[in-house]
Each structure stands twice: as structure tokens, then as C-alpha cells.
Design a protein around this nucleic acid. Structure first.
Length: 679
DNA sequence: GAATGTACAGTTTTT
DNA sequence: CTGTACATTC
């Protein structure tokens, strides 16, 4: 007698199509995708056209590796946004039964953060370093400028670049590894006369960050790179750890990110990068398309794959997309093929009299489509710049068409959220000057001056050094001199801080938030904001979110790193979002798709942008065209290209608008012109 | 701190 | 032209 018993968990033989997961890769993927997924280890470049199943391919590749018996802990998956990271890991989990929690996946910044927390001491930081967001950066920069012996008061100081400009300069310099001199000379010539002062601000800013045990977003990349460059042992540790590195949206990586990848990959070269050069639209923040274009120079043995079958759009839309990008000189040649059937609506080209008429047309057509049974969430209106959505917002509001818009303050960046997290940050990292001052300024009668004095007192005493977690704060802090007006709330504050530490450690995040709300912040909110109720709900929301964390460091890092739309804990609960028309900038529409897309303001000077046309910079112009390409490739079924023929409100005095020159590249027969009249 | 005046921009924005 | 951001002033 014999019995055949087959272990479900048995390791698959290498090379076989099926592994433990039982996924039939060959059946689930098309030939091009399958070739990528089962490719041998080694450098690989995947050129993935719009709508070609890029995420699908990448997630299957990860599943494949795991199926081959690879240890999840040896895989690093880098994405551009948190949302993409989350989506990716969820889909891998759905594909494969194995536990993937050991797999490292996330944005470059979050991975940098993760590495830096472990080795912060090697760089002269502590592991509880603070992360500065844009707001914090601004605050610190202002402080730094105030303290520098720059020419103040006179007419000369009037035109000293604003902090926003300085932050942009520094950030671009960090991300592209170019000197401040070069960045200013080529990208910000209007402030070139201040070059020495700018460099001096930069030096002080860098020093101050270190002194305050704080890193900005750029540091999360740059310092990680530095750490691994300088410490051979750590470098080889991580090189050995990550046997497979996969990178999504490679066309949008900048120099630092690219260097970081190369360094992590080391000689083993088990690197798979996926991207679409035609969708590179972030050069203005340091992305270098050359990374993807000359990948083969750095990795001569790289296998190059193209996945060009488009599952998203009807052929009518896809042909137009192909035509739209064709005139660009700098690109990998590819031709997307549609699998969907033809016979759909030919993309509409709609000239309108003026912007408000354009808005009326868009709104009316949207109403019609919804009347025909389309869900509002199947429809999007895309534009080059947010201000171009104004008329449409008004028109949709007037007609009571539900819409949502991808702009405005993000949840974690709102003042009240930042206020409460400043208190936590201060306890965790007592050298965090920005947070200290934010907290101090909440006290009545305390302005810049008093805040500064308090900071001095604080940083002079043991509490402010942050050597160890103190048992309590009040005994020392109550001895500080505060204005009479602030006396009571200062006391409250001190006792509240006491509650944030327990037994020589930090309280749990949600408990901290509770103490802060009860101790000081509720009163403050009542006094300072007219929409108290609303803000209180936000804090409660935050407390709920905090329940998911035991480690306060992790909680804080998450707050900073997810300070974006996708981290909004409210988001998932707002059901209306699923039932509304999307208004979005093209940048934010990347990676998304809708049945119906309206692309508005397609007039020369609006899109392509007038400034880009003025400079005559070919590279920038081609990026505009890629943006156009990204926009049109979002549409699944219907595409409307609209433009106003006049712009009465133009401040440049240009009254007549000409159709966007991008439309010149589209053969007439690919669109149908709609002649819209109001009567 | 509120009120008033002045200069200047007027793309995109994640982490 | 107009809203914003900053500085100055009381």
C-alpha cells in the first residue's frame, strides 16, 4: 500500500512556474510581463508604458521571488509615495500566503528614516531625532536668518530671497548633488547677487539642524547616503541584507536616490527598476530622467524589458496619446498597443468662448454623464495648475454636483495637529527648538522674545540636553521666569509634560495625546479657534490613529512622513469622496485613471505654461509635453480636450488665446471638434 | 497683537 | 489686476 501525500508548503523547484502560492504566473500575465516576472536575478530595466500593468508586474515579481523561496527580509521595495507602497504590499499579500512583514517596502524617505533610526549615533544624532516638515524648516530658517549678521533693516535686505526660495534652493542642491553656486546660477539667477549670504544661511541652517537633533526630508536621503558611504561595515551589512532591490517610478528618482540605490545594490546588482520615461514630470524637484535613460551605462549587463500593452484606454484615446508624446526627442521609443475594442467615442476637442463658458460646458456635460448612469467618481477634471480649477469649482457648486479636489491643507499639516505633536516631539527630543518655540508661543503674552528666553533657559538646563528621559519636568521648569499673563498656563504646561513620561520612558502615543488635550490644548483651542468643535474632532481622530502605535518614535515618524493626502485618517471615512467628481492637477493624477477625463485650459501659455515657453528651454518644454501625455493617458473611455478662446481676466493683457501647441501634434482625424453654442 | 501699508508674484509639490 | 506675505506702526 502506498499513499501519495503532497505538502502544500513544499518548496518549489527553481524555474518552475508555480510555487507555494499556486499562482499560475504564465496565465495571469501577458508574455512581456511574464518575462519580467521570471527574469533571472541581475540588473533589469523595465520600461512600462502607461496603463500597462506596471504594478501588477512588480507585485507578481515580488510574489515570484517569494515563491522561489526567497526570504522576505531580503527584499527591498522602493516606491515614490506612501500610497503606492501600501497598495503594492497589500497586493503582494493578496497574491501569496506567506508572511511579508519582514519585507522592507516604502518610500525612499521612510526607508532612510528606518535605517537612520538604527544608526543615528554614527552621524552625531540620537535615535529620537525630529523630522522637520516644510513648516518647521521655514520656522528654523527664519530663526537662522534673524540671528545672522546679514544686512538687516536697510533697503538692501528688502529683496533678500524669501525663506520659501531658500528652502527650494537648498533642497534642489541636496537632491541633485549640485553646489549651491550652480543651483543659484542656473535655476535662481534672480537671487544670484545674494549668493554669499545664501551660502552663509545654508551653513547655519545645516549646523542648526544638527544642534537641534533634527533632520529635514532631504536629510533622510542625504544622511542615509552619507552613513552608508562612510561606514564600510554598515554598507556591507545592508548590501548583504538586501538581495533584491526593486524600484518603482524610477524615472522620477533624483541623484541622491539613485546613488542610494546603487550603493545598496553593490556588486551583486540584483536590481529591478520600473518606470516610464514618458511620464517623468518631477524634474523641478530634482528628478533626473537621465537615471532611467542611461541605466545601461551604469549597468551594462542590464536586461531591458518593455511592457507596451495598454489595458486601460480605448484605442481612440490611446492613439491620441501615442501621437501626443511622439514629437519629444528625448525618450525610449515605444508604441503602446490597445487590447480594448475600438468603436468608442472619438476624443472631443472643444473650443469655448471664454473660461466661464468652459466651466459651464464641463459642468453641464458632467451632469449629463451622471444622468446617463455614470458614477461621479468615474469622472475627473484635470488641469495644469490649481488656479485653473476656480471657475469649474464654482460652476459645480452652483449645480450641486459633488466634487473633491486634491489641494489645500493636509491633515497632518494643520496648525492644531502640529501643535499637539510639537509637545510630544519636545518630550522625545528636547533639543527640538522649533517644537519648543511652537509650544511656548501658544502661551498668552508670549511672543518671539519670551519664547527665545525660555528656550535659552531650557537648553541651558539638564532637561534641554536630552541626555536621558527625565522623571518630571515641572520642578525645574516652574523656576523659569515667565510673564505674569502666562503664569497659569505655563504651570499647566509643565504638569502636562510630566504626564508624558512614565517610569523613565515615554507614555503611549494615545495617552500622551489625551493628557495634552485635557491638560492644555483643549483650553487653548477654545480660546484660539472659532471652529473649536471641528478641530477637537481632528485631535480625537489623531488619538484613534495613535492607538495603533506603542512606540512614540514610530508614531512621530509616521506623522511626518505621511503628512500627505494618503495619510489622512479621515480620508477613508469620508464616504462622499467615493461619490464625487475629482478635480486634480495633472501631477496629482499620476497613476490614477477614470472612465471620463476632461482636460481643461488647453491654451498656449496656460498649458504649456507660459513661463516655460518664454525661457525656450527645450527640456522643460518636453516635460510639459510629458505632462500632457500623463493627462490624456488617464482616460479609459472618454476624453474631452477643452480650451477657452479668450481670457478676459488675463493680467498679461493677452486677450485672445490660441489652442495649445500640443494639439498640433494630434492629427485631425483623431479628434472630433465640438462646436458648442449656448442657445 | 491689530491695523495699515507696500512689494511682488501670478506652475507643478512629495517626503 | 489682485491676493498674499511681510514689514512697519501704533
Amino acid at each position: 500500500m502506498a499513499r501519495e501525500y503532497r505538502m502544500k508548503s513544499a518548496r518549489s523547484k527553481p524555474g518552475s512556474s508555480q510555487g507555494i502560492s499556486g499562482i499560475d504566473y504564465e496565465a495571469e500575465l501577458n508574455a512581456q510581463q511574464y518575462a519580467v516576472v521570471r527574469s533571472k536575478p541581475g540588473p533589469a530595466l523595465v520600461i512600462a508604458g502607461a496603463g500597462s500593468g506596471k504594478t501588477r508586474t512588480l507585485t507578481h515579481r515580488v510574489a515570484w521571488l517569494l515563491d522561489q523561496g526567497e526570504d522576505p527580509g531580503k527584499i527591498l521595495l522602493l516606491t515614490f509615495t506612501n500610497k503606492a507602497a501600501r497598495e503594492m504590499i497589500e497586493r503582494v499579500e493578496q497574491l501569496i500566503p506567506s508572511d511579508v512583514s519582514a519585507l522592507w517596502s516604502g518610500t525612499f524617505h521612510s526607508i532612510g528614516n528606518r535605517i537612520l533610526r538604527r544608526h543615528a549615533e554614527d552621524l552625531g544624532y540620537t535615535r529620537s531625532f525630529s523630522i522637520l516638515d516644510r513648516d518647521d524648516q521655514k520656522a528654523m530658517m527664519k530663526q537662522v536668518i534673524k540671528e545672522l549678521p546679514l544686512d538687516t533693516g536697510g533697503a538692501a535686505s528688502k529683496r533678500f530671497p524669501k525663506v520659501d526660495v531658500l528652502i527650494s534652493i537648498f533642497s534642489l542642491s541636496e537632491n541633485t548633488c549640485e553646489s549651491i553656486d550652480d543651483v543659484v546660477e542656473y535655476q535662481f539667477p534672480q537671487v544670484a547677487r545674494w549668493i554669499e549670504e545664501i551660502k552663509s544661511v545654508h551653513r547655519s541652517y545645516q549646523a542648526r539642524k544638527k544642534q537641534n537633533n533634527s533632520m529635514d526630508f532631504d536629510d533622510l536621503l542625504v544622511q542615509t547616503l552619507k552613513l552608508l558611504q562612510q561606514h564600510d561595515d554598515l554598507r556591507s551589512l545592508y548590501q548583504r541584507k538586501f538581495r533584491h532591490v526593486l524600484v518603482d517610478e524610477y524615472q522620477d528618482t533624483n541623484r541622491v536616490q539613485c546613488d542610494l540605490i546603487d550603493l545598496l545594490v553593490g556588486d551583486r546588482q540584483c536590481l529591478m527598476v520600473v518606470g516610464d520615461d514618458a511620464q517623468s514630470i518631477y524634474s523641478w524637484r530634482g528628478a533626473d530622467m537621465d537615471n532611467i535613460l542611461s541605466f545601461h551605462k551604469k549597468y551594462p549587463d542590464a536586461e531591458v524589458f518593455k511592457i507596451e500593452t495598454n489595458y486601460r484606454s480605448v484605442p481612440e484615446v490611446l492613439e491620441l496619446s501615442n501621437a501626443a508624446i511622439r514629437p519629444n526627442r528625448v525618450q525610449y521609443e515605444k508604441e503602446l498597443r490597445a487590447v480594448r475594442d475600438g468603436g468608442a467615442m472619438v476624443p472631443a476637442l472643444v473650443p469655448l468662448d471664454d473660461p466661464s463658458f468652459q466651466a459651464e460646458f464641463v459642468a453641464e456635460r458632467i451632469e449629463e454623464l451622471i444622468g446617463e448612469g455614470l458614477e461621479p467618481s468615474d469622472i475627473a477634471v484635470l488641469y495644469r495648475a490649481h488656479y485653473q480649477s476656480m471657475e469649474i469649482q464654482m460652476e459645480l457648486t452652483r449645480r450641486k454636483v459633488p466634487f473633491q479636489i486634491t489641494s489645500g491643507l493636509r491633515f497632518f499639516e494643520q496648525a492644531h495637529i502640529k501643535d499637539v505633536s510639537a509637545l510630544i516631539r519636545l518630550v522625545v527630543n528636547p533639543r527640538d527648538e522649533v517644537s519648543f518655540k511652537r509650544v511656548a508661543l501658544m502661551l498668552p503674552g508670549v511672543g518671539d522674545k519670551t519664547a527665545d528666553n525660555l528656550w535659552r533657559a531650557w537648553s541651558a538646563c539638564e532637561l534641554g540636553q536630552g541626555i536621558s528621559v527625565p522623571e518630571s519636568f515641572s520642578p525645574i521648569m516652574l523656576t523659569f521666569r515667565v510673564p505674569a499673563k502666562a503664569k497659569d498656563s505655563w504651570q499647566q504646561l509643565c504638569y502636562t509634560l510630566d504626564e508624558l513620561v512614565v517610569d523613565g520612558g515615554f507614555a503611549r502615543p494615545s495617552d500622551m495625546l489625551f493628557s495634552i488635550l485635557e491638560g492644555v490644548y483643549d483650553d487653548y483651542m477654545r480660546a484660539s479657534f472659532d471652529n473649536y468643535e471641528h478641530r477637537k474632532q481632528d485631535i480625537e481622530q489623531l488619538m484613534e490613529y495613535g492607538e495603533g502605535f506603542d512606540d512614540v518614535l514610530e508614531f512621530l515618524a509616521q506623522l511626518s512622513l505621511m503628512s500627505s493626502v494618503d495619510g489622512d485618517p479621515q480620508k477613508n471615512q469620508r464616504k462622499e469622496d467615493d461619490e464625487s467628481v475629482m478635480l486634480s492637477s495633472i501631477h496629482q493624477a499620476k497613476g490614477l485613471e477614470w472612465k471620463v477625463v476632461f482636460l481643461v485650459w488647453l491654451a498656449d501659455g496656460m498649458f504649456p505654461n507660459g513661463r516655460v515657453l518664454e525661457t525656450g528651454d527645450e527640456q522643460m518644454f518636453e516635460e510639459e509635453r510629458r505632462l500632457f501625455y500623463v493627462a490624456v493617458t488617464r482616460a479609459k473611455d472618454q476624453l474631452y480636450l477643452t480650451y477657452p478662446m479668450t481670457n478676459p481676466k488675463s493680467y498679461t493683457g493677452e486677450y485672445m488665446m490660441r489652442p495649445s501647441r500640443f494639439l498640433d501634434a494630434i492629427p485631425d482625424e483623431m479628434t472630433e471638434e465640438w462646436k458648442v453654442s449656448s442657445w
